[in-house]
Design a protein around this nucleic acid. Structure first.
Length: 224
DNA sequence: GACCAGGCACATC
DNA sequence: GATGTGCATGGT
């Protein structure tokens, strides 16, 4: 194993250990059912989770938080229910696109969907308009328990700030780091991503000067 | 009032 | 292929 590879591997493991030691297990994803996780994954696109929760509550109250429920209601009605999550018109269409896909390919059954090999599943989910790489991997990992690492804005920011990666690395290049250097374990990927979001929300703000982090006594970085 | 939040598709060059 | 833009609410 070459030096760079070894460094990246050690660094990724070290970050995880520091985060886990500080925050403990996160018990993700916040969703009662796999279907709720999928809906949440679409609604949370570029959106604060607190707003997504309001939209989810509206869907539950309207008894629409099932494949059949979302299939039945109109796109317009759906948009009204999910309004608090923002981008409600486009997200209503995206949810409808996913539902159409679910019924066309799997008769509306998540159980059937889960049986698909992971590589095939990812490719097919990505073909749904409105489902990009992060949403697809969130679905694979948190709804279906497949070992797909979820790369989000926090992941990229954290790794950039700690000079593990360059700013210009794209989604799949970043994901590849986790897939190549760490064991592909679903629970581990689940916990790792959840911890990144936790530290990101609290301490890793967009302001590039913001390094305040409880994991370093001097408050600057995870490790220096 | 400005800035931010667990993206994505599409237009344009 | 790179870069820019629209989509929108609610909390700080």
């Amino acid at each position: 194993m070459d030096v760079m590879t070894r460094t990246a591997k050690v660094t990724l493991k070290k970050i995880y250990q520091k985060l886990y030691a500080h925050f403990g297990p996160q018990h993700w994803w916040p969703g009662d059912t796999p279907f709720e996780v999928i809906v949440g994954a679409i609604l949370t696109q570029n959106t604060n989770w607190a707003n997504v929760e309001k939209a989810i509550a509206n869907l539950k109250r309207a008894r629409a938080l099932t494949p059949q429920g979302l299939k039945k209601i109109s796109t317009q009605k759906l948009a009204t229910l999910i309004k608090p999550s923002g981008y409600y018109n486009i997200k209503a269409k995206r949810l409808k696109n996913f539902i159409a896909f679910l019924f066309e390919e799997y008769d509306g059954s998540l159980k059937k969907m889960k049986k698909e090999p992971v590589a095939v599943l990812r490719r097919k989910v990505l073909s749904v308009n409105g489902v990009g790489p992060e949403t697809a991997d969130s679905i694979l990992l948190y709804a279906f328990g497949k070992p797909a690492f979820v790369v989000d804005a926090y992941t990229k920011r954290l790794l950039c700030r700690h000079e593990v990666i360059d700013e210009d690395l794209d989604y799949h290049a970043i994901q590849d780091l986790f897939h190549r250097y760490l064991e592909a374990d679903e629970q581990f990927f689940n916990e790792y991503h959840a911890l990144i979001v936790r530290v990101g929300k609290e301490f890793c703000k967009p302001d590039p000067k913001c390094f305040a982090c409880p994991l370093s006594k001097k408050g600057i970085r995870l490790f220096c």
